[in-house]
């Protein structure tokens, strides 16, 4: 398997507080990797730092063999590393279809000028159709985000990232706020992503989801990695249980 993402000693500090303390993490092509940890463990800072929101971070990040250091968010996205948000963050004034189009299309300066006069052919149609059917949004494409249920909005956020045909998606708590059935259905969709050439870094609190779909799991606490392994290894790791899972009843 080829290495997709290689994070070396990533470090984020706000003043004297170290939010991410020299974290190293790898993701291979076709993998679904979980990142778990209690609130305040540094998960969100980690995602922000990876995707260019925090520019003055320590360490280095290689994506498909090229460095992501000092790239702005839009440049990271154009390399094929997309993220979703805990708070969804859809474009409220655009329909779901248009939300996906914004991600799939990439107008150049010339096409922007041409748009003024001649109707351009819709671009990225295949990608949008793929993302929309994968997230079961075909029936709501012409609705606005606020007309959708919370679960559908979450899926739309994922679909928007997928419409850009990413190599890797960082999902920030995609299952938060979903009910059990929705969460299980979402897990199935996740599992199918590697088959489409999309790898996933999944950050979530839903232990059943993370332990169920991930190939490997990283456990973060106080900004440091305290455990790495397969779901079975994580279930039985003493330190992880102590820091996060809080007992053996998770298996039940």
């Amino acid at each position: 398997m080829t290495r997709l993402l290689d994070v070396n000693d990533l470090r984020v500090s706000y003043g004297a507080v170290v939010a991410v303390n020299d974290v190293s993490l790898t993701i291979d092509e076709g993998e679904i990797v979980g990142l778990i940890g209690p609130n305040g463990a540094g998960k969100s800072s980690f995602i922000d730092a990876l995707t260019g929101a925090i520019r003055n971070r320590g360490g280095n990040v290689q994506f498909e063999g090229r460095t992501l250091d000092r790239l702005a968010p839009h440049a990271v996205a154009r390399r094929g590393l997309l993220r979703t948000f805990q708070s969804v963050e859809l474009f409220d004034d655009l329909t779901i279809l248009e939300n996906l189009q914004v991600a799939a299309e990439q107008p150049t300066f010339l096409s922007m000028l041409r748009d003024l006069v001649v109707p351009s052919k819709p671009k990225g149609v295949d990608d949008i159709a793929w993302a929309s059917s994968l997230c079961d949004l075909d029936d709501v494409l012409d609705r606005f985000p606020q007309e959708l249920s919370h679960g559908q909005r979450k899926l739309a956020g994922v679909a928007r990232a997928l419409a850009k045909r990413p190599r890797l998606v960082l999902m920030d708590e995609p299952a938060a706020g979903l009910d059990t059935d929705e969460s299980i259905a979402f897990g199935e969709r996740l599992r199918s992503l590697p088959g489409h050439g999309v790898s996933v870094l999944l950050v979530d609190h839903d232990m059943e989801l993370v332990l169920g779909v991930c190939d490997r799991i990283f456990v973060l606490d106080f900004g440091s990695v305290i455990g790495v392994g397969t779901p079975d290894e994580i279930r039985n790791d003493e330190r992880v249980i102590e820091a996060y899972l809080g007992g053996h009843d998770v298996e039940a």
């Binding site: 702005a72 839009h74 996205a77 154009r78 963050e89 991600a103």
Partner: peptide, 10 residues
Amino acid sequence: SNERAAAYVG
């Protein structure tokens, strides 16, 4: 609508 999200989709 959302400058931040816009940047993150490229």
